[in-house]
């Protein structure tokens, strides 16, 4: 069986899989690569030229990434090389022990959970897991959990509450799986119950969107004391494609829907729907996974320090007030 833990992230990074809007960077990088090959059997020193081009590539990346459209960001959030939960777990946590199953029906591979140490202290880690290659994609059901996934998450959260472990959740899903079996086994109920239980769980909860925050399937592990987002992750009530096909009557208008829905981290921070944006390395998380993981770890430790120090009843009151504060209306 394929195990994500064995996947060597860096072998996939050889080819950076440039997105369409990154084509100018891709062309420069190709040129650099070409020069390097020529350089081997040539007497002229072309080191200087390579350096010049590398600088140019960096500057180009900086300027391109300084003004990304929401649609481009949603492509980055779903980039084929985007680091997934297990890539981060390896780098952020020590002694991770995965815990499986919902005790009722099955073990959903679209959700990974387990206990670990973060900076020497015990925590519970829960999140959606996508697959890298076709085989693993199917194994992980493209990161789309079924009810048993949410029930596994719930079981682990309640376990965390019993042993006073803070819960750290990582959101990365296109949404809850829309399938016949999922409906039969109560997808709605599974999501709803998690929302209710998380709102009152007697242990700190810090949620981080690391890729795609897809609707109720994301929120079902997303209720807590802090909500963080990686810079190029997205969070929305429906996918841009889904929104476009309903409101614009055409999935081709996904770009417009992405603009209209305010799905990016900077927008959501501005609207005070999230607490913090964790900056990504130049070119996105996949360009430097170690640096990205280090930033996430730093942010988690910092927020945990605060919520851990609070009296649990005060923390729960604060969490409830946060939840009740969601929404904009006039009286």
């Amino acid at each position: 069986m394929f195990r994500a833990e064995d996947f060597d992230y860096h072998c996939a990074l050889m080819d950076l899989n440039f997105l369409e809007f990154e084509q100018p960077i891709a062309e420069l990088e190709a040129k650099i690569e070409e020069l390097r090959l020529v350089g081997d059997d040539n007497e002229i020193n072309i080191e200087e030229e390579i350096e010049r081009l590398q600088k140019k590539s960096r500057a180009l990346t900086e300027s391109l990434f300084a003004s990304l459209t929401p649609w481009q960001i949603s492509q980055l959030a779903r980039h084929p090389l985007r680091p997934y939960l297990l890539d981060y777990i390896k780098r952020i946590f020590d002694d991770f022990q995965e815990l499986h199953g919902d005790r009722g029906f099955a073990d959903d591979h679209a959700i990974v959970g387990g206990i670990a140490r973060l900076g020497g202290r015990s925590v519970m880690v829960i999140g959606q897991q996508k697959g890298r290659d076709t085989k693993e994609k199917i194994h992980r059901n493209f990161g789309m959990p079924r009810p048993e996934g949410y029930r596994k998450a719930l079981r682990l959260m309640e376990l965390a509450e019993r042993f006073r472990l803070p819960v750290l959740t990582f959101i990365d899903t296109p949404g809850a799986y829309p399938g016949v079996g999922a409906e039969e086994r109560g997808q709605s109920e599974a999501i709803a119950r998690n929302l209710l239980v998380m709102a009152h769980l007697r242990t700190p909860i810090v949620c981080t969107v690391i890729g795609e925050g897809g609707s109720g399937g994301a929120l079902a592990i997303g209720v807590g004391d802090r909500l963080l987002m990686l810079q190029f992750s997205t969070y929305s009530v429906i996918s841009p494609e889904g929104c476009a096909s309903i409101l614009w009557k055409s999935a081709d208008k996904a770009q417009l829907a992405a603009e209209a829905m305010a799905i990016t981290s900077d927008k959501l921070k501005e609207l005070e729907l999230i607490d913090e944006v964790i900056p990504e390395p130049l070119g996105g998380a996949h360009r430097n996974v170690d640096a990205m993981a280090a930033s996430i770890k730093e942010a988690l430790l910092r927020h945990l320090e605060v919520v851990r120090g609070m009296d649990i009843d005060d923390l729960l009151a604060q969490r409830y007030q946060r939840l009740m504060g969601y929404g904009k209306y006039k009286e």
């Binding site: 929120l219 969070y235 929305s236 829905m261 939840l323 969601y326 929404g327 904009k328």
Partner: peptide, 11 residues
């Protein structure tokens, strides 16, 4: 209302 709406589920 995008994410504002989604959060009504939690609320």
């Amino acid at each position: 209302e995008s994410l504002f709406s989604l959060m009504q589920m939690a609320k």
